[in-house]
Amino acid sequence: MAEPGAIAAPVAGATMSADERHWLLRRLHSLSGIVPIGGFLLFHIFENAFVLRGSEVWWKETEFTRGLPFQIAVEAAVLWIPILYHAIYGLIITATAQPNDYPYARNYQYTMQRITGILAFLFIGFHVFSTRIFYYATGTETSYERMHSFMIDPVYLTIYVVGTLACVYHLTNGIYTFSITWGLAVGPRAQRMVNRACIALGLILAIASVAIMVAFRAPA
């Protein structure tokens, strides 16, 4: 069963119509949200979870990402370009979607997906600017002390909580829609099971994310 409003796959060898291009671009949009963006979010939560064991452990265990060769090129290829594409095409989907495409309870999840997508994009831009771009501009690493200063500031903390939870919801609900779009969850029963699993995953990631932010509030 395809996601409501989905169109048939393009026929090989034929000139692509506007609908067929939309089909392909939407599949790429769906895929980019899981790989590499979603994969990196899961890894980012995992590596930052080391802060629960203290600032020194966190700094040591995150050394791998700080020491990657060709960092700017890797980050651009793996993150910045996919995120820009995913965000831009997501806005196109939001602007062109019809209300009846996602009826009943699914419509609420779709609406939240679009809202959290915008919030996540804004937060990622803020996060990248205040950490990676700040580092490239000044040479200042995102140390524990710097993250601590963010987390004890009510404004920064609010931005991080809202932005991170938006990212978590957008990913986990996106996994659910991905399973439908790509034909991995066929039929109402399978889709209900996947939806429940994604809700559970979302709760786990949300709790872990909040715990990480609380841990960063502790003095070094």
Rank of each mutant, 00 (worst) to 15 (best):
I72F: 11
T116K: 06
A9M: 10
P99I: 05
L31P: 00
L201Y: 00
G187I: 08
A95N: 08
E47D: 07
E63W: 15
I7M: 12
S149W: 06
F123V: 04
I115L: 12
H44M: 12
M112E: 05
R146P: 01
F150T: 00
Y85T: 04
Y144Q: 06
K60G: 10
I37P: 02
R21A: 13
S17H: 11
I118M: 11
R146Y: 12
Y160L: 08
G202M: 01
E75R: 07
L52I: 05
I204R: 01
R26Q: 13
V155A: 11
A190S: 14
I93D: 09
G187T: 06
M147Y: 10
E3N: 06
A220W: 02
R53F: 10
W23F: 15
F216N: 06
E141P: 01
T65G: 12
V214S: 04
V78K: 02
G38E: 05
T164E: 05
R217G: 07
A166D: 07
R53G: 07
A190H: 08
E141A: 07
Y176D: 11
Y110S: 12
A211I: 03
L28N: 07
A197M: 10
S32T: 14
T15Y: 04
I212F: 08
R196M: 05
A166M: 09
H86R: 08
L79V: 05
V57F: 04
S30R: 07
P4L: 05
Y108R: 13
E56P: 03
D19C: 08
M151I: 06
N195L: 15
I37T: 04
W23E: 13
Y108S: 10
V11A: 06
M213T: 09
L41K: 02
G54I: 02
L91R: 06
A2E: 14
F134P: 00
A76T: 12
V74M: 00
A197D: 03
R26A: 14
T62L: 13
I83P: 02
I37F: 03
W59T: 14
H44N: 14
L205F: 06
P99T: 04
P36S: 09
Y144F: 15
W80V: 14
R106N: 15
F40G: 05
L171F: 14
I88T: 15
R53S: 08
E3M: 11
A211F: 07
V214W: 13
L119K: 04
V74W: 00
I212H: 05
M147G: 13
G33D: 08
N100T: 13
A208E: 07
A12P: 00
Y144K: 04
I72V: 13
P4D: 05
A97T: 10
A6N: 08
F70H: 01
S143L: 11
L203Q: 00
I118N: 06
I72M: 07
R189P: 00
Y176E: 08
L157A: 11
Y136H: 03
W182L: 12
A9C: 07
A215V: 02
A220T: 02
